[in-house]
Computed example of a mutant assay.
Amino acid sequence: MSKNPGILSKVYKGVISSVDRFVPGLVRPLWESPAGPRTVFFWAPMFKWGLVLAGLGDSLSRPPQNISLNQCCALAATGMIWSRYSLVIKPKNYSLLAVNLAVAMIQLYLIFKHLNWRAQNAI
């Protein structure tokens, strides 16, 4: 590991310290928590909500015959694995738990939708 932080780390720390002055007292406990917006433990799950939105789009609009069973199984499995991991790590990361449970649930629904289509068309 290098001794000097990179340019992106310096920019991030500068942004965080400039925003720090404007954080209201009501939000301060979240802001200063070990899994709050000042850490990667907050931002990684926030960006992962994109997978949830994509899954919701698939569940609403994708025909069941076009659902990839392998992909949905892989995403459901990783959602369940990372849900467990989010409770084992320190600090416990409940935002990571929420996003991974949402990923797993949506993918399990898509698996059910595809398998239901297969069962109806097997006759």
Rank of each mutant, 00 (worst) to 15 (best):
S2R: 06
K3Q: 06
P5Q: 00
P5V: 02
G6R: 10
G6V: 02
G6D: 10
I7V: 09
S9H: 09
K10R: 12
V11E: 08
V11K: 12
Y12S: 00
K13H: 12
K13L: 14
S18Q: 15
S18V: 14
V19M: 06
V19R: 01
V19K: 05
D20T: 05
R21N: 10
F22Q: 06
F22Y: 08
F22D: 05
V23F: 03
P24Q: 02
P24R: 03
P24H: 04
R28Y: 05
L30N: 11
W31K: 02
E32A: 13
E32M: 14
P34S: 05
A35R: 01
A35I: 11
G36E: 05
G36M: 00
P37D: 06
R38M: 05
R38T: 02
R38H: 08
T39P: 08
T39R: 09
T39S: 10
F41S: 13
F41I: 09
F41Y: 15
W43T: 12
W43F: 02
A44M: 14
M46V: 06
M46H: 04
K48S: 14
K48Y: 15
K48H: 14
W49S: 07
W49C: 01
W49D: 03
G50K: 06
A54S: 10
G55S: 13
L56M: 12
L56C: 07
L56G: 05
G57V: 05
G57H: 11
S59E: 08
L60N: 08
L60G: 07
L60S: 07
L60E: 04
S61L: 12
S61M: 11
P63F: 06
P64F: 10
P64D: 03
Q65T: 06
N66I: 03
N66H: 09
N70P: 05
N70L: 13
C72I: 08
C73I: 10
A74Q: 05
A76D: 03
A76P: 02
T78H: 10
G79M: 01
G79L: 00
W82S: 08
S83I: 05
S86R: 04
V88Y: 14
I89M: 13
K90E: 12
K90Q: 11
P91I: 02
P91F: 01
P91D: 02
K92V: 11
K92N: 06
S95H: 13
L96M: 15
V99P: 02
V99A: 01
N100V: 04
L101V: 13
L101W: 00
A102D: 03
A102C: 07
V103K: 01
V103M: 10
V103N: 00
A104I: 04
M105T: 08
I106G: 02
Q107R: 12
Q107D: 07
L108N: 02
L108V: 09
L108F: 08
Y109L: 09
L110P: 00
L110T: 00
I111A: 00
F112S: 10
K113H: 06
H114Y: 11
L115G: 03
W117F: 09
W117L: 05
R118L: 13
A119V: 14
Q120G: 13
Q120R: 15
N121P: 15
I123S: 15
